[in-house]
Structures are given as structure tokens and as C-alpha cells.
Amino acid sequence: MQNNIPILKLGDFLLVTIQMDVHDRTALQLQDDLTNEISKRRSKGVLIDISNLEVVDSFMGRVLSDIASMAKVLDAETVVVGMRPAVAMTLVELGLSLPSVVTALNLERGMELLTQRLGRKGNG
């Protein structure tokens, strides 16, 4: 059995770092854990770092989309960061463009983007 993916609290945000290979069940578990955590901590933003992930197939793509949509319902923004070039190309060839997922190049950019988006929301 794979260990659950840890969810770290980073200021107002939650940070999830996905490791090299993830079993399907572990990915679904993350979906559960993350929604619970968002609700419990009233988090406004979620960063999912996939820079270690070598494969995003249609299943993993759906998990990422679902997490983003679920977080939205719970009033939190999700940014997926660090997608590798080869993974991005493969996803496109697979026919997936993850329209509901906001992406950023790396963790730092993801933080900037979240802060910016949340700031805009707060002001508006």
C-alpha cells in the first residue's frame, strides 16, 4: 500500500507535492483528503506541485480537474505547478487540455498567481 500524499499548510494555502508515481487509489485518496482539509482549514488556495510526476494519463488528468472543480465549489482556487514539458506534450497528444485547471511554471510562480487571483477577488 502506498502512503497517502501529505498535505502541507503554507500560510493561507495548502501545498501538495505529488511524488514520482502514484497508484490510482492514492490519487483518489488525495481528492478526499484535500477537500476535507480545505473545508477544515477554510483554505482559499491550493498548490499542487507535479514537477516530480513522470506520467499524467487520462485518469490523473481527471483527478486534477476534479480537485480543481471541487475546490472551486468550496471557494478555493487551485493552481497546478511544475508540469514537465514531456508530460504537457503527451497530455496534448492524448487529447486533454485540462480547461478547468489553472497552471503555473513552478511553485514560486504558482504562489504569485494565487496571491494575485485571491487579491483581485478580495478587492472585487
Binding site: 513522470e54 499524467v56 494519463d57 487520462s58 503527451t90
Partner: peptide, 28 residues
């Protein structure tokens, strides 16, 4: 299965993108 294909691709010196394609297709 993904790990096994990754090993084959590395052994045969496939490019990163080709390896990723093979691993993803096998995963599906």
C-alpha cells in the same frame, strides 16, 4: 507496468518525450 516500460525506454535510450508517451499509453 509504467515503471517496467520506463526501464525499457531508458535501456534503449529513448528520448524523454518518447519515454513519457510509452509510459502514458501503457498506463491507459
Amino acid at each position: 507496468a509504467r515503471v517496467l516500460i520506463s526501464q525499457w525506454a531508458v535501456r534503449q535510450e529513448f528520448s524523454v518525450i518518447e519515454r513519457t508517451r510509452a509510459m502514458t499509453a501503457v498506463s491507459e
